[in-house]
Design a protein around this nucleic acid. Structure first.
Lengths: 333, 333
DNA sequence: ACGTATGCCGCAAACGTTTGTGTAAGCCGC
DNA sequence: GCGGCTTACACAAACGTTTGCGGCATACGT
């Protein structure tokens, strides 16, 4: 067990009687074994020795030289959120395929934290950023654009900034059409954080259908708050406090829906017989509690988010994307 | 809007009429403003200009020179899992406090993927690794130890390897004592993946109490599988297939418990009147569906996991830690 | 007054890559 | 048999840090 000296291009080159530049070029050539940078024989010898010695390029040296880190930073409200965790998985999967790697950070949906984390990632020389926590008014994104930092949004849109999202408006419509088709006429909405596009678009889609069908959803039956189970519980309690209980509730998010479900069960309200309930995203727990919901392609949103960013970095011309949702009808509604 | 040339030590030094070495030393001195590397005046000038120009150290250059990346790699079964996501948040929080940063990867609980991701992280020159996906037999960890790679385990233990976990055995005991105290005598266990310490320790704790109280839990009432809602559903169906239904079910994991809950409700079985149900971890959804469970300090496990690793890297002497769980009694049991 | 300590700072060599440019040898066509 | 073209490599300069060493003052001790 020798001193375990690191195996660098230099030691490979010396052993092969070559210059580091040649070794570097061959090893980096995407053409692989039939690189045009050396004779077939030399190329083979280089690959053989590199493999034998277990050579791995020092990414710090490479990044220093090329001024590219091959790293993209991802900022999400919170990784604990299944939805964002899934999208991040999609981002990371696509990144790995492209030879990139990702670093993720929680913003807790707070502007200052978002900014701090983003700046930290930029200090680490991220080549680009992906935001999963955009709010409808977002001066920081403008600033970044001004600074020429490449970035893309996932999950939530924000103005004209490049984004990959679910077609939330369409998803809201799906739920509305379904619940109306079951014959209900009084509705409540657990609408999530009003400063986000997901909240707004989903409820807008829902309400547009209601309006089109001539159904009036009272303003005070639309309850805003957060996206988690606790917010769902609180909103449900609010909706049930009305003299005329709703016949169906649309929560724009599965977690909020499950929180609401807990309240209903606690009070002995039968679902869906007394009140129907629908969520959004089709997280596994929705299946676990038989919740009607809208499936959004979370993983794919992440994947395309990274691809979009990469095109942007590559200087290509890219446009925002909206992926289609699917209604999943289960026992709750 | 000039060519936006990067602001390096060199440009600072030139502007100040100093040498880069001086600037570097002052900027790196943990003593901060009263560094002993330069006169108070010079130090002030350096800090002033650095701030004005918005200097940020190039981490690639620094890492190249120092051969330390200040990055630790974290490997988890899956970030979608709330429990591991929370632990990772703890890791990352502690890392940020220490001026480190983290990169996380999913292993999907598969040995090959775990190895592949770990090696990728090491190629990126991670200073150390944290595993949240250890299995009871784990040759790779032995190999890493042999190679001198610093690492720590969180969530699950494995042999004598350094770890920070919840005291799962104690948690299992808590559940057993509680369920017995409610007067039930026939039990079923949804035991999760048997190749993990969490599964084994939690069920062993549970069964030890049962044995101590003279209660016999039949072998076929202990159903193994995964840790997710789907596995919970399947296991619950299995348990209900018995002629004598259990009076209480302990799922070693909240998600599995929620899956089981769905099956019970679907069949019109009242919880807890007909069957009591308890989970493990106290995820927010447990509160959402009023599930009795065991609270494990997930975030803190992550934090201490990082601290442990850091001590290990620093050459200190460290021992494994088990953090105490708390029983949370809710409506389900 | 002389030697030594201390404060303050510069010099220069790494760290491991990537990449523009240089240069021999061999082959071609004529 | 000579110019030009390709093949197959070598040379060397960066990229931005960190850090051992050295040097010149001024202050201090005796």
């Amino acid at each position: 067990m020798a001193a375990a000296e690191p195996v660098t291009l230099k030691v490979l080159a010396k052993e092969l009687g070559l210059n580091v530049s040649t070794v570097s070029r061959v090893l980096n050539d995407p053409a692989g074994p039939d690189s045009k940078w050396a004779s077939a024989q030399t190329t083979a010898r280089i690959f053989a020795l590199a493999r034998e010695r277990g050579y791995t390029r020092n990414p710090h040296a490479a990044s220093l030289r090329t001024a590219r880190s091959n790293m993209v930073g991802v900022i999400v409200p919170r990784l604990q959120d299944f939805v964002l965790a899934t999208m991040y998985e999609g981002v990371d999967e696509a990144a790995t395929e492209q030879g990139l790697f990702t670093v993720v950070a929680n913003s807790l949906d707070k502007a200052e934290t978002q900014r701090a984390k983003a700046e930290m990632l930029l200090e680490r020389r991220a080549d680009g950023l992906i935001f999963g926590d955009a709010h409808l008014t977002e001066p920081y994104l403008e600033e970044l654009k001004g600074r020429g930092v490449p970035f893309a949004l996932i999950n939530r849109t924000c103005g004209e900034h490049l984004s990959v999202t679910c077609d939330d408006y369409a998803g809201g419509r799906l739920v509305a059409e379904h619940l109306i088709s079951t014959g209900r006429t009084r509705f409540g909405v657990i609408a999530g954080d009003p400063t986000t596009s997901t909240s707004q678009d989903r409820t807008r889609g829902f309400l547009d259908v209601m309006r089109e069908k001539g159904i009036n959803v009272l303003e005070d039956r639309i309850i805003h708050g957060g996206f988690d189970a606790a917010a769902g519980q609180k909103a449900a309690i609010g909706l049930l406090a009305h003299p005329e209980k709703p016949e169906a509730i649309f929560a724009v998010n599965d977690f909020a829906a499950i929180g609401a479900l807990g309240v209903l069960q606690e009070r002995g309200i039968r679902v869906p017989d007394d009140i129907a309930l629908a969520g959004f995203n089709d997280t596994p727990l929705a299946a676990g509690v038989n919740l009607t919901t809208v499936r959004s392609p979370m993983h794919e949103i992440g994947r395309q988010g990274l691809q979009t960013l990469q095109h942007l970095i590559g200087g290509g011309t890219v446009a925002s994307t909206k992926l289609a949702p699917t209604l999943i009808v289960r026992a709750s509604g």
